[in-house]
Amino acid sequence: MQQWLTEIAPWLAQNDIFTPATLAQYWQGLVNTVQLVFISLLVGVVLAVPLAIARGSRWPWLKWPIWFYTYIFRGTPLLIQLYLAYYGFAFIPGIQETWLWFFIDDPTYPALLAFTLNTAAYTTEIFRGAIKATPRGEIEAARAYGMSKVLAYRRIILPSAFRRALPAYGNEVIFMLHASAIASVVTIMDLTGAAYYVYARFYSPFPAFIFVALVYMALSFGIQGIFRQLEKRMLRHLRSGS
């Protein structure tokens, strides 16, 4: 690290945009983006599993509200959801006096709320599709072994559904990373916010945005790599025999 820094030092000295101060801005932006995306994906997936199971339930009062929720959140732009979470809640009369204000005051929590609910809606549908695609024979085999419904879900249906959902979910993770670029409109200094700042400070759009695009690209490739490894390991049984 030290050597790397001394190596790029002369190059840094030549330009007035990528100073240690702006690189620190980008670093802070990277930390904020990764935190925001990681937390919302994590909470989103935890919410999505029970929602996906309940979505396939036979009871209409369980099934249709979840259908409605995913319909709403997949049918509207994330930017609108973010605006509603950030500006909408702040104007509920009297909310400033309640404990809720602590969460609404800070831009991070409204953004987390919007991102989490959005990714949970998409992930619910991804899992729902994967569960539905479980081969009939596997379920019948589980029944034949005398497994209860819960046990069959736990041992047979969910594990195979998760594997099938993996490629689609990998896409959702990358989409979420890219979608998080709108966090800067509610004053969060994420990667895009840092790029905006550098751009506005030096009036030089190309270096500011190309640099941040490269960072996003590196993150995307990293995520893609992780999912490729996971798919290799977990979908081994689907590969044609060699």
Partner: peptide, 8 residues
Amino acid sequence: AVDMQSGR
């Protein structure tokens, strides 16, 4: 201006 009004 909006966030001045919201109290943030």
